[in-house]
Design a protein around this nucleic acid. Structure first.
Lengths: 108, 108
DNA sequence: CAGAATCCAATATGATACTG
DNA sequence: CAGTATCATATTGGATTCTG
């Protein structure tokens, strides 16, 4: 990830990718296999899912465990860092609801 | 702003634009004129600054006040919604520092 | 002062097909 | 099962110039 000029931008850059927030939210509920995540989010392509997972892993927010079995099994989980930022994500969730209600209000 | 599938993504979408986090951080310190913001962030072009300010305004996070003077004066400030999410931004700031220290640790 | 307009380069995302 | 590879489109960002 590129260097940011401000910690807030660093944080944003680590989670702004397509549906990264939702991915973390799902892993929050428990470890998930690749296909489980794909099924949980039918609106994002596999190519995108793979990309986001790789980036989240590179940024140290999630962990990838490969089980040497046939057929292959890969599980994703939150790292300690990923778990540390859960309160922030919770705040973002609430903030998102606030934003949505503001947007809805504009329509009326 | 497009509809999101999850409040976290709604929130991210509202602040993921180039340096939006930093803009809000500056307005947090007090209202600012357009040129003040430009000078505070020399690394972003005016075109981008204008665009981010317009988007933040459209999403209801900042307010734009025009003073009918010559030369023109425009001041930007946080809206109530913008102020409401300050605790979240504070958490993001801390999270960003955590991420940065993790990244630095990898270099050694 | 506070921007708008224009043109171009860089990323991000989407759709589809293929593989160890 | 858990991805890759390839091609095409869309969105974002940068540089520069112009204006009420």
């Amino acid at each position: 990830m590129k260097k940011s000029y401000c910690p807030i931008d660093t944080f944003i850059n680590s989670i702004k990718g397509k549906r990264k927030g939702t991915i973390i939210l799902h892993l929050w509920q428990g470890d998930k296999r690749y296909n489980e995540l794909v099924k949980l989010m039918p609106d994002i392509s596999e190519r995108m899912m793979t990309k986001q997972l790789k980036e989240l892993e590179a940024d140290g927010l999630i962990h990838r465990t490969v089980f040497p079995e046939v057929p292959p099994r890969v599980e994703y989980s939150l790292t300690e860092l990923g778990r540390d930022i859960r309160p922030v994500l919770k705040g973002m969730y609430k903030g998102g609801l606030l934003l949505e209600s503001t947007i809805d209000a504009e329509k009326n």
